[in-house]
Design a protein around this nucleic acid. Structure first.
Lengths: 214, 214, 214, 214
DNA sequence: GATGAATGAGCATTCATTCAT
DNA sequence: AATGAATGAATGCTCATTCAT
């Protein structure tokens, strides 16, 4: 069995190697201009080898998104295991998200990827599905944190936890967009004027939502 | 000088003709796969003529975004001229936005365009700048509506109108994203479960924000 | 008749206007990159008007060559009318040529133009034929100067004047080439080393040819 | 390491294959009208493959020039190794040159190429530099042959060998030009009249130069 | 004569993907 | 498994020329 395991580990390492090379490259040159040749030479692998590990370029790109989502999932799991009021758990998660997208532009942009992947070679479990699953999981973790908050009283909003979570998720997505395109707009200017960060804005948002009760 | 005027109008018509052909094509085939050849033949114009009216493909795409923003701007102006409580004005605007992005997927996607336009031929007033200006105007119209709401008491939230407007704008952007990528995710499922639309969700959001007071 | 004459003069002026604009443009941007649009706007004429005076771009380019040849022809005629030994006449002509090609890179390059002109619209007397005629005339003027030199004893070379003239013409063409491509080669370096100009080189050449007798 | 060698040879063969196809095509259709598509199909290779071996069209064209220069260089080296009077060595070289340009119009025209090559991908040793180097080498070989001629007394001209070589080189370039454009001019007619060839003319030229002494 | 909007064939170059070795 | 040479479809853009006004 150890051979098979070793192989598996080896394969995982190669995939990571390729992925890391790709991410580095994107950070250097932006999303659009990158060729498989460049990725191959950066990963110190031949072009053909790339295709042994990723079906096509779109799949490789989606893998970046997945990597970001996996990271978020790990962090959200850590958050929810803490012994804290639900409101704090949610805040923790949301700030983790903001940290990630503000630190890593590549992940941010990858998160917006909605391109089609060629459906010719349907694998057992495609990267796209993985991403959808992870996104759903993330949402459900927020739901759970809200439920905890409802019980411990830290979240007074009487709305369905799912709906509230959705509202929060949408706000998160809006902020992600904001990070990418609103860099030099009125929006950014308002933040500066009021000496408030995106994190601060998000906290205010949560505060309003959590303490609101009809 | 009616000749000059006629020329001007003729030119505008051509630009619209090209733009409409492009939008139709995008609706049919998606953003990525469209070639200038296709646009030309759809517009019943030669390829060269396209370049007489739009510097390059990116500029043409941005023009779609601008068209959507111009439409929103007109609508927002209509909204704010109505004699209604500020809270209603904001709701009106936001629902207009939701209507647009749900009706017209092309506009929705165009709104996310953040590609670079070649700066080789800098015109007096570039499309990109127009878009930024319009986006800022839209934000300011929301700010103004909130100020009205503050005065007539329909908006109780004591936060700075600008900050509140920004919050709303971010939520709008989040919903725009949602429309595009969350189609078949948990998020959509939650909406169905709770028998609530995106509009409903947005109204709840506004309701919470407006009636909240620290 | 004066109307017809005026028309004729007007037409000539327009042609010159276009030609001058073209030459200026070539001096600024080189031969390859120039478009008819640029020429038109530089000549402050519409693009269509260009085609009223020159059948196509190639013809226009050939007209530059012709202009240079016409200039040379005038100068050669002036030379030969002087009361000087034949050897001096030839030298005069040759130095005129060297002056021109060293002063005016555009003319120099134009002189090398051997592109095809569309034969679809054969005019009474095409520019290409004009150029050939002029080139022949130039050669014959050199022949005549040599004949004079033979008679006055300033040219001792016993070879047929025509052959000698051809030899000189070929040397002139070689120098023309040299001006364009040998700029930064060993050839130019040799000139510098020996502190000699192209003119000096040509004079040595003529001196050798003229004083040689078998 | 035979594999590496084989690869190298294989690569050389491909480059030659492409070059030969290009030359054939130029002979058939002239320099201007050829497309990369045609070259590819003539070379029985795909268009993409062309770009694997030549950076761009200009580089490919320059390679023709280089091929001609390499051929001349080989011939000149053979000439100079012969045990003959210097004057004969020079004549040998010059006639070799005339043979080449009269046999192969494509090489002749290629020799006049002075187009720019895109400097985006600067290789260790560009084709352009190779050509300049070869041209210089050719000139120096003529210089050396003249020096030999000075010593063995076959060349009596007391001028600096370098200057004399330059004179000869310029005459050669002039003849090259003559071959291309003077085909149907007075010049060609003179040759016919006097029943003399370009080679004969060149021999006369050399004879005059070599036996001349001030 | 003059215009300039419209044309559309033409073209170099790129790059994801394949497959023989 | 790994390679990298070969592929060739795909595409944005140019520009000389025409022609209706």
């Amino acid at each position: 069995m150890s051979t098979k395991e070793r192989k598996e580990r080896e394969k995982k390492r190669r995939k990571d190697q390729i992925l890391d090379a790709t991410i580095t490259l994107i950070e250097e040159q932006g999303f659009e201009q990158i060729t498989m040749d460049e990725i191959a030479s950066r990963a110190e692998l031949s072009k053909g080898t790339l295709y042994l590990y990723y079906n096509d370029k779109a799949t490789l790109y989606q893998a970046i998104k997945k990597k970001a989502l996996v990271f978020l999932h790990e962090q959200f799991l850590k958050s929810i295991q803490q012994d804290m009021p639900g409101a704090m758990l949610v805040k923790d998660m949301v700030l983790t998200f903001l940290d990630l997208i503000q630190d890593n532009a590549t992940f941010t942009k990858a998160m917006l990827l909605f391109e089609q992947i060629s459906k010719d070679k349907p694998e057992e479990h495609s990267v796209i599905e993985d991403c959808t699953d992870l996104e759903n999981e993330l949402l459900m973790l927020i739901v759970r944190a809200i439920q905890i908050g409802n019980q411990d009283g830290s979240i007074k909003n009487k709305q369905s936890p799912k709906i509230l979570a959705l509202q929060i998720a949408i706000q998160m997505q809006g902020m992600l967009q904001f990070c990418i395109i609103n860099a030099n707009t009125k929006g950014a200017q308002i933040l500066t004027e009021h000496e408030i960060t995106l994190e601060g804005l998000m906290e205010q948002f949560l505060h309003t939502q959590f303490n609101y009760s009809e």
